[in-house]
Design a protein around this nucleic acid. Structure first.
Lengths: 232, 232
DNA sequence: CCGACGGGTTGACATATATCAATTGATTTG
DNA sequence: CAAATCAATTGATATATGTCAACCCGTCGG
Protein backbone atom coordinates (compact mmCIF):
# COMPACT_ATOMS: atom_id res chain seq x y z
CA UNK A 1 0.00 0.00 0.00
CA UNK A 2 1.45 3.40 -0.97
CA UNK A 3 2.39 5.69 1.90
CA UNK A 4 -0.12 8.37 0.91
CA UNK A 5 -3.01 5.91 1.07
CA UNK A 6 -1.79 4.57 4.36
CA UNK A 7 -1.82 8.08 5.77
CA UNK A 8 -5.25 8.82 4.27
CA UNK A 9 -6.73 5.78 5.94
CA UNK A 10 -5.01 6.65 9.17
CA UNK A 11 -6.75 10.02 9.07
CA UNK A 12 -10.22 8.48 9.05
CA UNK A 13 -12.18 9.19 12.21
CA UNK A 14 -12.31 5.48 12.75
CA UNK A 15 -8.51 5.12 12.95
CA UNK A 16 -7.22 8.57 13.83
CA UNK A 17 -7.03 8.18 17.60
CA UNK A 18 -5.83 4.61 17.94
CA UNK A 19 -2.34 3.57 19.04
CA UNK A 20 0.30 3.40 16.31
CA UNK A 21 1.18 -0.24 16.74
CA UNK A 22 -2.49 -1.26 16.74
CA UNK A 23 -3.05 0.58 13.50
CA UNK A 24 0.06 -1.00 12.04
CA UNK A 25 -1.02 -4.49 12.96
CA UNK A 26 -4.51 -3.82 11.58
CA UNK A 27 -2.97 -2.76 8.29
CA UNK A 28 -0.60 -5.70 8.19
CA UNK A 29 -3.47 -8.08 7.53
CA UNK A 30 -5.16 -5.69 5.15
CA UNK A 31 -4.79 -5.53 1.43
CA UNK A 32 -5.75 -3.05 -1.21
CA UNK A 33 -7.08 -3.82 -4.61
CA UNK A 34 -8.23 -2.03 -7.75
CA UNK A 35 -11.59 -2.96 -9.18
CA UNK A 36 -13.15 -1.99 -12.51
CA UNK A 37 -16.61 -0.43 -12.66
CA UNK A 38 -19.73 -2.50 -12.05
CA UNK A 39 -18.02 -5.24 -10.08
CA UNK A 40 -20.03 -6.82 -7.30
CA UNK A 41 -17.75 -6.62 -4.27
CA UNK A 42 -20.01 -8.30 -1.77
CA UNK A 43 -23.35 -10.06 -1.95
CA UNK A 44 -26.02 -9.84 0.70
CA UNK A 45 -26.33 -12.97 2.77
CA UNK A 46 -22.65 -13.85 2.64
CA UNK A 47 -20.51 -13.90 5.79
CA UNK A 48 -18.71 -10.65 6.53
CA UNK A 49 -15.04 -11.51 6.34
CA UNK A 50 -13.69 -8.03 5.68
CA UNK A 51 -14.28 -4.46 6.66
CA UNK A 52 -14.17 -2.47 3.41
CA UNK A 53 -12.75 0.99 2.89
CA UNK A 54 -13.29 2.97 -0.28
CA UNK A 55 -9.95 4.63 -1.03
CA UNK A 56 -10.96 6.04 -4.39
CA UNK A 57 -13.90 5.71 -6.77
CA UNK A 58 -17.38 5.01 -5.39
CA UNK A 59 -19.50 2.10 -4.31
CA UNK A 60 -23.24 1.48 -4.43
CA UNK A 61 -24.89 -0.36 -1.58
CA UNK A 62 -28.08 -2.05 -2.73
CA UNK A 63 -30.51 -4.76 -1.78
CA UNK A 64 -32.77 -7.10 -3.65
CA UNK A 65 -35.92 -9.04 -2.87
CA UNK A 66 -38.24 -11.01 -5.06
CA UNK A 67 -36.69 -9.73 -8.28
CA UNK A 68 -36.75 -6.09 -7.19
CA UNK A 69 -33.71 -4.01 -6.38
CA UNK A 70 -33.15 -0.76 -4.52
CA UNK A 71 -30.17 1.46 -3.84
CA UNK A 72 -29.64 1.99 -0.14
CA UNK A 73 -26.64 4.33 -0.12
CA UNK A 74 -23.52 5.42 -1.95
CA UNK A 75 -20.11 5.20 -0.33
CA UNK A 76 -17.46 7.70 -1.37
CA UNK A 77 -13.81 8.11 -0.38
CA UNK A 78 -12.62 7.88 2.17
CA UNK A 79 -14.99 5.90 4.27
CA UNK A 80 -15.84 2.41 5.36
CA UNK A 81 -18.83 0.23 4.80
CA UNK A 82 -20.49 -2.81 6.35
CA UNK A 83 -19.03 -1.98 9.75
CA UNK A 84 -22.07 -3.40 11.55
CA UNK A 85 -21.84 -6.81 9.88
CA UNK A 86 -18.13 -6.92 10.71
CA UNK A 87 -18.78 -6.14 14.35
CA UNK A 88 -21.62 -8.60 14.76
CA UNK A 89 -19.92 -11.26 12.66
CA UNK A 90 -23.24 -11.56 10.85
CA UNK A 91 -24.15 -11.87 7.16
CA UNK A 92 -24.17 -8.76 4.97
CA UNK A 93 -27.60 -7.17 4.71
CA UNK A 94 -26.67 -5.30 1.55
CA UNK A 95 -24.72 -6.00 -1.60
CA UNK A 96 -22.05 -3.64 -2.88
CA UNK A 97 -20.86 -2.87 -6.37
CA UNK A 98 -18.35 -0.41 -7.74
CA UNK A 99 -19.92 2.47 -9.64
CA UNK A 100 -16.66 3.34 -11.32
CA UNK A 101 -13.06 2.16 -11.27
CA UNK A 102 -12.35 2.01 -7.55
CA UNK A 103 -9.64 1.24 -5.08
CA UNK A 104 -10.80 -0.70 -2.04
CA UNK A 105 -8.94 -1.64 1.14
CA UNK A 106 -9.98 -4.82 2.91
CA UNK A 107 -9.31 -5.45 6.58
CA UNK A 108 -10.05 -8.91 7.98
CA UNK A 109 -13.08 -8.65 10.26
CA UNK A 110 -11.53 -10.75 12.99
CA UNK A 111 -8.61 -8.32 13.19
CA UNK A 112 -11.03 -5.43 13.63
CA UNK A 113 -12.78 -7.27 16.44
CA UNK A 114 -9.49 -8.20 18.10
CA UNK A 115 -8.03 -4.69 18.01
CA UNK A 116 -11.37 -3.35 19.25
CA UNK A 117 -10.82 -5.19 22.52
CA UNK A 118 -7.22 -4.03 22.80
CA UNK A 119 -7.56 -0.35 21.94
CA UNK A 120 -10.17 1.72 23.75
CA UNK A 121 -9.69 4.71 21.45
CA UNK A 122 -10.46 2.49 18.51
CA UNK A 123 -13.45 1.11 20.40
CA UNK A 124 -14.81 4.58 21.01
CA UNK A 125 -14.29 5.51 17.37
CA UNK A 126 -16.19 2.43 16.22
CA UNK A 127 -19.06 3.23 18.54
CA UNK A 128 -19.21 6.80 17.31
CA UNK A 129 -19.12 5.67 13.70
CA UNK A 130 -21.85 3.08 14.27
CA UNK A 131 -24.04 5.58 16.10
CA UNK A 132 -23.57 7.95 13.17
CA UNK A 133 -24.56 5.23 10.68
CA UNK A 134 -27.60 4.33 12.77
CA UNK A 135 -28.78 7.91 12.89
CA UNK A 136 -28.29 8.28 9.16
CA UNK A 137 -30.57 5.33 8.46
CA UNK A 138 -33.19 6.65 10.87
CA UNK A 139 -33.14 9.94 9.00
CA UNK A 140 -33.50 8.12 5.70
CA UNK A 141 -36.46 6.21 7.10
CA UNK A 142 -38.14 9.39 8.28
CA UNK A 143 -37.55 10.85 4.83
CA UNK A 144 -39.24 7.82 3.26
CA UNK A 145 -42.20 7.59 5.61
CA UNK A 146 -43.02 11.25 6.14
CA UNK A 147 -42.49 12.73 2.70
CA UNK A 148 -43.86 12.33 -0.81
CA UNK A 149 -41.43 11.64 -3.63
CA UNK A 150 -41.60 15.27 -4.73
CA UNK A 151 -40.68 16.43 -1.24
CA UNK A 152 -37.85 13.91 -1.03
CA UNK A 153 -36.42 15.17 -4.30
CA UNK A 154 -36.71 18.81 -3.24
CA UNK A 155 -34.88 18.13 0.01
CA UNK A 156 -32.30 16.00 -1.74
CA UNK A 157 -31.53 18.90 -4.07
CA UNK A 158 -31.14 21.29 -1.14
CA UNK A 159 -28.78 18.86 0.60
CA UNK A 160 -26.79 18.34 -2.56
CA UNK A 161 -26.63 22.06 -3.14
CA UNK A 162 -25.19 22.64 0.30
CA UNK A 163 -22.78 19.77 -0.15
CA UNK A 164 -21.60 21.35 -3.42
CA UNK A 165 -20.86 24.65 -1.72
CA UNK A 166 -24.23 26.38 -1.65
CA UNK A 167 -24.24 28.05 -5.07
CA UNK A 168 -27.41 28.34 -7.11
CA UNK A 169 -26.14 25.85 -9.71
CA UNK A 170 -24.47 22.49 -9.10
CA UNK A 171 -24.06 19.00 -10.50
CA UNK A 172 -25.86 15.84 -9.51
CA UNK A 173 -23.25 13.43 -8.31
CA UNK A 174 -24.73 10.34 -9.87
CA UNK A 175 -26.92 9.19 -12.69
CA UNK A 176 -30.61 9.80 -12.44
CA UNK A 177 -31.70 6.19 -12.46
CA UNK A 178 -29.66 5.60 -9.33
CA UNK A 179 -30.93 8.79 -7.75
CA UNK A 180 -34.45 7.56 -8.42
CA UNK A 181 -33.69 4.28 -6.68
CA UNK A 182 -32.09 6.01 -3.71
CA UNK A 183 -35.13 8.27 -3.38
CA UNK A 184 -37.44 5.28 -3.60
CA UNK A 185 -39.08 5.93 -6.96
CA UNK A 186 -38.87 4.91 -10.60
CA UNK A 187 -36.72 6.78 -13.13
CA UNK A 188 -39.88 7.84 -14.97
CA UNK A 189 -41.27 9.32 -11.83
CA UNK A 190 -38.06 11.17 -11.07
CA UNK A 191 -38.24 12.76 -14.49
CA UNK A 192 -41.75 13.97 -13.71
CA UNK A 193 -40.73 15.06 -10.25
CA UNK A 194 -38.10 17.37 -11.73
CA UNK A 195 -40.84 18.94 -13.81
CA UNK A 196 -43.00 19.17 -10.75
CA UNK A 197 -40.32 21.32 -9.11
CA UNK A 198 -40.15 23.80 -12.00
CA UNK A 199 -42.84 26.00 -10.40
CA UNK A 200 -40.47 26.35 -7.44
CA UNK A 201 -37.62 27.56 -9.60
CA UNK A 202 -35.72 24.35 -10.26
CA UNK A 203 -34.30 23.89 -13.73
CA UNK A 204 -32.41 20.87 -14.99
CA UNK A 205 -30.04 20.43 -17.92
CA UNK A 206 -28.56 16.96 -17.96
CA UNK A 207 -26.90 16.54 -14.59
CA UNK A 208 -26.74 20.27 -13.96
CA UNK A 209 -29.27 21.66 -11.51
CA UNK A 210 -30.06 25.29 -11.08
CA UNK A 211 -32.07 26.64 -8.19
CA UNK A 212 -33.43 29.96 -9.33
CA UNK A 213 -35.62 30.69 -6.36
CA UNK A 214 -34.03 29.43 -3.18
CA UNK A 215 -36.73 30.77 -0.86
CA UNK A 216 -39.56 29.23 -2.87
CA UNK A 217 -37.94 25.82 -2.99
CA UNK A 218 -37.18 25.87 0.72
CA UNK A 219 -40.71 26.91 1.52
CA UNK A 220 -41.93 23.88 -0.39
CA UNK A 221 -39.27 21.42 0.83
CA UNK A 222 -39.33 22.42 4.48
CA UNK A 223 -35.90 20.96 5.21
CA UNK A 224 -35.40 19.81 8.79
CA UNK A 225 -32.09 19.19 10.55
CA UNK A 226 -33.52 16.05 12.17
CA UNK A 227 -33.90 14.54 8.69
CA UNK A 228 -31.59 16.40 6.37
CA UNK A 229 -28.57 17.36 8.40
CA UNK A 230 -26.05 14.56 7.95
CA UNK A 231 -23.54 15.90 10.43
CA UNK A 232 -25.56 15.50 13.64
CA UNK B 1 -35.12 0.82 42.87
CA UNK B 2 -36.37 -2.63 43.97
CA UNK B 3 -33.85 -5.45 43.94
CA UNK B 4 -35.75 -7.47 41.35
CA UNK B 5 -35.66 -4.59 38.87
CA UNK B 6 -32.01 -3.99 39.56
CA UNK B 7 -31.30 -7.61 38.73
CA UNK B 8 -33.48 -7.50 35.60
CA UNK B 9 -31.59 -4.52 34.26
CA UNK B 10 -28.32 -6.15 35.15
CA UNK B 11 -29.32 -9.11 33.00
CA UNK B 12 -29.69 -6.98 29.86
CA UNK B 13 -27.10 -7.82 27.21
CA UNK B 14 -25.94 -4.25 27.51
CA UNK B 15 -24.99 -4.61 31.19
CA UNK B 16 -24.54 -8.34 31.79
CA UNK B 17 -20.78 -8.55 31.24
CA UNK B 18 -19.60 -5.33 32.87
CA UNK B 19 -17.74 -5.10 36.16
CA UNK B 20 -19.86 -4.98 39.32
CA UNK B 21 -18.64 -1.65 40.60
CA UNK B 22 -19.10 -0.02 37.19
CA UNK B 23 -22.67 -1.24 37.06
CA UNK B 24 -23.25 -0.03 40.58
CA UNK B 25 -21.91 3.42 39.85
CA UNK B 26 -24.00 3.58 36.67
CA UNK B 27 -27.10 2.76 38.69
CA UNK B 28 -26.25 5.20 41.43
CA UNK B 29 -26.93 8.14 39.12
CA UNK B 30 -30.00 6.45 37.64
CA UNK B 31 -33.56 6.81 38.74
CA UNK B 32 -36.73 4.94 37.98
CA UNK B 33 -40.12 6.44 37.49
CA UNK B 34 -43.68 5.36 36.78
CA UNK B 35 -45.52 7.06 33.96
CA UNK B 36 -49.19 6.89 32.98
CA UNK B 37 -50.23 6.00 29.43
CA UNK B 38 -49.83 8.50 26.61
CA UNK B 39 -47.12 10.55 28.25
CA UNK B 40 -44.48 12.03 25.97
CA UNK B 41 -41.18 10.99 27.52
CA UNK B 42 -38.87 12.65 25.07
CA UNK B 43 -39.32 15.00 22.13
CA UNK B 44 -37.27 14.86 18.97
CA UNK B 45 -34.75 17.65 18.72
CA UNK B 46 -34.08 17.85 22.42
CA UNK B 47 -30.64 17.09 23.86
CA UNK B 48 -30.18 13.48 24.95
CA UNK B 49 -29.54 13.70 28.67
CA UNK B 50 -30.59 10.18 29.60
CA UNK B 51 -30.38 6.67 28.31
CA UNK B 52 -33.86 5.18 28.78
CA UNK B 53 -34.73 1.64 29.77
CA UNK B 54 -38.26 0.27 29.61
CA UNK B 55 -38.68 -1.82 32.76
CA UNK B 56 -42.39 -2.51 32.27
CA UNK B 57 -45.13 -1.29 29.95
CA UNK B 58 -44.32 -0.23 26.40
CA UNK B 59 -43.11 2.82 24.55
CA UNK B 60 -43.79 4.10 21.05
CA UNK B 61 -40.98 5.78 19.14
CA UNK B 62 -42.37 8.16 16.55
CA UNK B 63 -41.39 11.09 14.40
CA UNK B 64 -43.17 14.05 12.93
CA UNK B 65 -42.62 16.39 10.02
CA UNK B 66 -44.79 19.05 8.53
CA UNK B 67 -47.87 18.01 10.49
CA UNK B 68 -47.49 14.30 9.66
CA UNK B 69 -46.53 11.63 12.14
CA UNK B 70 -45.23 8.09 11.81
CA UNK B 71 -44.45 5.28 14.23
CA UNK B 72 -40.88 4.13 13.90
CA UNK B 73 -40.76 1.30 16.45
CA UNK B 74 -42.16 -0.03 19.69
CA UNK B 75 -39.94 -0.67 22.69
CA UNK B 76 -40.93 -3.43 25.10
CA UNK B 77 -39.38 -4.62 28.37
CA UNK B 78 -36.65 -4.97 29.04
CA UNK B 79 -34.69 -2.96 26.59
CA UNK B 80 -33.16 0.44 26.04
CA UNK B 81 -33.86 3.19 23.59
CA UNK B 82 -32.08 6.22 22.12
CA UNK B 83 -28.69 4.64 22.72
CA UNK B 84 -27.22 6.28 19.62
CA UNK B 85 -28.17 9.80 20.69
CA UNK B 86 -26.69 9.13 24.12
CA UNK B 87 -23.42 7.94 22.62
CA UNK B 88 -23.10 10.79 20.15
CA UNK B 89 -24.35 13.38 22.62
CA UNK B 90 -26.64 14.54 19.83
CA UNK B 91 -30.32 15.55 19.76
CA UNK B 92 -33.00 12.85 19.73
CA UNK B 93 -34.16 11.96 16.24
CA UNK B 94 -37.39 10.43 17.51
CA UNK B 95 -39.96 11.24 20.15
CA UNK B 96 -41.15 8.64 22.64
CA UNK B 97 -44.45 8.20 24.39
CA UNK B 98 -45.78 5.57 26.74
CA UNK B 99 -48.42 3.34 25.18
CA UNK B 100 -49.62 2.17 28.57
CA UNK B 101 -48.72 2.67 32.21
CA UNK B 102 -44.95 2.13 32.16
CA UNK B 103 -41.95 2.04 34.40
CA UNK B 104 -38.86 3.67 32.92
CA UNK B 105 -35.28 3.78 34.20
CA UNK B 106 -33.19 6.80 33.30
CA UNK B 107 -29.41 6.76 33.28
CA UNK B 108 -27.56 10.04 32.78
CA UNK B 109 -25.94 9.98 29.33
CA UNK B 110 -22.64 11.34 30.58
CA UNK B 111 -22.36 8.43 33.01
CA UNK B 112 -22.89 5.99 30.15
CA UNK B 113 -20.14 7.66 28.15
CA UNK B 114 -17.79 7.74 31.13
CA UNK B 115 -18.24 4.09 32.05
CA UNK B 116 -17.90 3.20 28.38
CA UNK B 117 -14.30 4.40 28.50
CA UNK B 118 -13.59 2.61 31.75
CA UNK B 119 -15.15 -0.78 31.09
CA UNK B 120 -14.23 -2.62 27.90
CA UNK B 121 -16.90 -5.26 28.41
CA UNK B 122 -19.49 -2.53 28.57
CA UNK B 123 -17.96 -0.94 25.49
CA UNK B 124 -18.22 -4.16 23.55
CA UNK B 125 -21.82 -4.63 24.65
CA UNK B 126 -22.71 -1.14 23.49
CA UNK B 127 -21.12 -1.73 20.12
CA UNK B 128 -22.99 -5.00 19.71
CA UNK B 129 -26.25 -3.38 20.69
CA UNK B 130 -25.73 -0.48 18.32
CA UNK B 131 -24.80 -2.78 15.47
CA UNK B 132 -27.97 -4.73 16.17
CA UNK B 133 -30.06 -1.55 16.12
CA UNK B 134 -28.43 -0.43 12.90
CA UNK B 135 -29.15 -3.71 11.20
CA UNK B 136 -32.76 -3.62 12.38
CA UNK B 137 -33.29 -0.25 10.75
CA UNK B 138 -31.66 -1.41 7.54
CA UNK B 139 -34.07 -4.33 7.48
CA UNK B 140 -37.00 -2.00 8.07
CA UNK B 141 -35.83 0.16 5.21
CA UNK B 142 -35.55 -2.80 2.86
CA UNK B 143 -39.05 -3.80 3.92
CA UNK B 144 -40.32 -0.32 3.05
CA UNK B 145 -38.52 0.09 -0.26
CA UNK B 146 -38.82 -3.39 -1.69
CA UNK B 147 -42.33 -4.42 -0.70
CA UNK B 148 -45.88 -3.24 -1.25
CA UNK B 149 -48.05 -2.59 1.77
CA UNK B 150 -49.81 -5.93 1.30
CA UNK B 151 -46.49 -7.75 1.31
CA UNK B 152 -45.34 -5.84 4.37
CA UNK B 153 -48.48 -6.83 6.23
CA UNK B 154 -48.16 -10.48 5.20
CA UNK B 155 -44.58 -10.63 6.41
CA UNK B 156 -45.44 -8.78 9.58
CA UNK B 157 -48.08 -11.37 10.36
CA UNK B 158 -45.61 -14.19 9.78
CA UNK B 159 -43.05 -12.54 12.07
CA UNK B 160 -45.66 -11.91 14.71
CA UNK B 161 -46.89 -15.48 14.44
CA UNK B 162 -43.39 -16.81 15.03
CA UNK B 163 -42.91 -14.39 17.90
CA UNK B 164 -46.14 -15.66 19.46
CA UNK B 165 -44.99 -19.26 19.34
CA UNK B 166 -45.80 -20.34 15.80
CA UNK B 167 -49.42 -21.42 16.25
CA UNK B 168 -52.01 -20.84 13.55
CA UNK B 169 -53.84 -18.26 15.69
CA UNK B 170 -52.36 -15.39 17.66
CA UNK B 171 -53.01 -11.86 18.89
CA UNK B 172 -51.80 -8.60 17.40
CA UNK B 173 -49.73 -6.91 20.05
CA UNK B 174 -50.95 -3.41 19.42
CA UNK B 175 -53.85 -1.49 18.04
CA UNK B 176 -54.39 -1.46 14.32
CA UNK B 177 -53.94 2.26 13.81
CA UNK B 178 -50.45 2.00 15.24
CA UNK B 179 -49.71 -1.11 13.22
CA UNK B 180 -50.77 0.82 10.13
CA UNK B 181 -48.36 3.62 10.99
CA UNK B 182 -45.51 1.20 11.67
CA UNK B 183 -46.12 -0.49 8.33
CA UNK B 184 -46.22 2.87 6.59
CA UNK B 185 -49.88 3.01 5.60
CA UNK B 186 -53.19 4.51 6.68
CA UNK B 187 -55.62 2.67 8.99
CA UNK B 188 -58.14 2.46 6.15
CA UNK B 189 -55.57 0.83 3.95
CA UNK B 190 -54.61 -1.64 6.63
CA UNK B 191 -58.23 -2.65 6.91
CA UNK B 192 -58.33 -3.33 3.17
CA UNK B 193 -54.97 -5.07 3.28
CA UNK B 194 -56.37 -7.58 5.78
CA UNK B 195 -59.16 -8.27 3.31
CA UNK B 196 -56.59 -8.57 0.57
CA UNK B 197 -54.93 -11.39 2.51
CA UNK B 198 -58.16 -13.39 2.89
CA UNK B 199 -57.47 -15.28 -0.37
CA UNK B 200 -54.25 -16.48 1.26
CA UNK B 201 -56.04 -17.88 4.27
CA UNK B 202 -55.78 -14.99 6.73
CA UNK B 203 -58.83 -14.28 8.87
CA UNK B 204 -59.16 -11.50 11.41
CA UNK B 205 -61.51 -11.08 14.35
CA UNK B 206 -60.69 -7.97 16.32
CA UNK B 207 -57.05 -8.35 17.33
CA UNK B 208 -57.07 -12.10 16.80
CA UNK B 209 -55.39 -13.35 13.63
CA UNK B 210 -55.76 -16.82 12.24
CA UNK B 211 -53.56 -18.18 9.51
CA UNK B 212 -55.51 -21.00 7.93
CA UNK B 213 -53.14 -21.75 5.09
CA UNK B 214 -49.57 -21.30 6.17
CA UNK B 215 -48.03 -22.44 2.89
CA UNK B 216 -50.20 -20.13 0.79
CA UNK B 217 -49.41 -17.10 2.89
CA UNK B 218 -45.69 -17.83 2.87
CA UNK B 219 -45.74 -18.33 -0.87
CA UNK B 220 -47.23 -14.87 -1.19
CA UNK B 221 -45.15 -13.15 1.50
CA UNK B 222 -41.79 -14.66 0.53
CA UNK B 223 -40.22 -13.97 3.94
CA UNK B 224 -36.47 -13.49 3.85
CA UNK B 225 -34.06 -13.74 6.80
CA UNK B 226 -32.18 -10.67 5.56
CA UNK B 227 -35.33 -8.62 6.11
CA UNK B 228 -37.52 -10.50 8.54
CA UNK B 229 -35.17 -12.27 10.91
CA UNK B 230 -34.65 -9.93 13.85
CA UNK B 231 -32.07 -12.08 15.58
CA UNK B 232 -29.24 -11.78 13.04
C1' DC C 1 -80.67 3.18 30.10
C1' DC C 2 -78.81 6.63 27.14
C1' DG C 3 -75.62 9.29 24.73
C1' DA C 4 -70.86 10.51 23.71
C1' DC C 5 -66.74 8.92 22.26
C1' DG C 6 -63.19 6.44 19.77
C1' DG C 7 -61.39 2.71 17.06
C1' DG C 8 -62.40 0.21 13.24
C1' DT C 9 -64.60 -0.49 8.83
C1' DT C 10 -66.63 0.60 4.34
C1' DG C 11 -67.60 3.03 0.02
C1' DA C 12 -66.74 6.71 -3.20
C1' DC C 13 -63.46 9.28 -4.93
C1' DA C 14 -58.86 11.75 -5.60
C1' DT C 15 -54.10 11.53 -5.93
C1' DA C 16 -49.64 9.39 -6.23
C1' DT C 17 -46.93 6.25 -8.24
C1' DA C 18 -45.81 2.38 -11.28
C1' DT C 19 -45.90 0.21 -15.73
C1' DC C 20 -45.58 -0.19 -20.60
C1' DA C 21 -44.48 1.48 -24.98
C1' DA C 22 -42.44 4.67 -27.87
C1' DT C 23 -39.17 8.38 -28.79
C1' DT C 24 -35.19 11.23 -28.25
C1' DG C 25 -30.47 12.21 -27.84
C1' DA C 26 -26.00 11.27 -26.63
C1' DT C 27 -22.28 7.88 -26.74
C1' DT C 28 -20.08 3.88 -28.13
C1' DT C 29 -18.61 0.57 -31.44
C1' DG C 30 -17.76 -1.88 -35.65
C1' DC D 1 -19.85 7.16 -40.86
C1' DA D 2 -23.63 4.10 -39.58
C1' DA D 3 -25.49 0.89 -36.43
C1' DA D 4 -26.13 -0.24 -31.83
C1' DT D 5 -26.76 0.94 -27.23
C1' DC D 6 -28.43 3.06 -23.24
C1' DA D 7 -30.05 6.72 -20.22
C1' DA D 8 -33.55 9.93 -20.15
C1' DT D 9 -37.92 11.49 -21.32
C1' DT D 10 -42.86 11.47 -22.60
C1' DG D 11 -47.62 9.89 -23.07
C1' DA D 12 -51.15 6.61 -22.08
C1' DT D 13 -52.76 3.74 -18.85
C1' DA D 14 -53.09 0.75 -14.71
C1' DT D 15 -52.47 0.08 -9.94
C1' DA D 16 -51.63 1.46 -5.29
C1' DT D 17 -52.52 4.32 -1.80
C1' DG D 18 -54.57 8.29 0.54
C1' DT D 19 -58.61 11.17 1.72
C1' DC D 20 -63.14 12.15 3.11
C1' DA D 21 -67.50 10.99 4.84
C1' DA D 22 -70.53 7.84 6.76
C1' DC D 23 -71.46 4.18 9.64
C1' DC D 24 -70.89 0.36 13.01
C1' DC D 25 -70.03 -1.17 17.45
C1' DG D 26 -67.89 -1.61 21.53
C1' DT D 27 -66.83 1.10 26.11
C1' DC D 28 -67.53 4.45 29.49
C1' DG D 29 -69.73 7.76 32.33
C1' DG D 30 -73.80 10.18 33.59
Amino acid sequence: MPDSEYRDIRKLDLFAQMADDNFTSLMRGAYVQNFPAQIELITEGEPSDFLHIVVSGSVDLFSTWNGRETSMATVRPISTFILAATIKDAPYLMSARTLEKSRIALIPSQDVRAIFDADSNFARAIVTELAQCYRSVIKAQKDLKLRTSLERLANYLLRQQRHAGGGAAFELDFEKRRLASVLGMTPENLSRAFKGLQPYGVSVTGTRISIDNQADLERFAKPNPLIDDFST
